[in-house]
Amino acid sequence: MKTNTEPKIVAFCCNWCSYAGADAAGTSRLQMKPHFRVIRAMCSSRIDPELILDTLKKGAWGVLVAGCHPGDCHYVTGNYRTQKRIALLKNLLTELGIAPQRVRLEWISANEGGKFQKVINEFIDEMTSLGPLQLPGRPTAKEAS
């Protein structure tokens, strides 16, 4: 199914906090809109801006990067790196004419299933109202339908 009408969200989650937080949401049977796909990395700092741009280029409407809360990073300072990189990337997105809110950074701990649910549902709603990312050479939602 290659439609452009359903939101597509990619969520990069760190192994120690946010992936476990996503699991916690599922274990608690917290219901979420199913339009997101989680990709696990060991640390949020593994997710480089180029990969995020590539994810948007491949058709994601929005990209969530989730890591441990400041001070809780399993790798000491990884999440601070992530924070800086995402801030810079958002500047770049603005310059490229892409809404910076398409990339979202969140701190979600292993026991914050409720926060994971809230963030995902909010983000999917926000991206649904923004619609698919219009890049040159990409059919728009209208064209696809």
Binding site: M1, K2, K8, V10, R37, I39, A41, R46, I47, L51, D54, T55, K58, G59, A60
Partner: peptide
């Protein structure tokens, strides 16, 4: 990572 993203987006 790139291949996973591609698969996640139905590429």
């Amino acid at each position: 990572l790139k291949a996973m993203v591609g698969a996640a987006l139905g590429e």
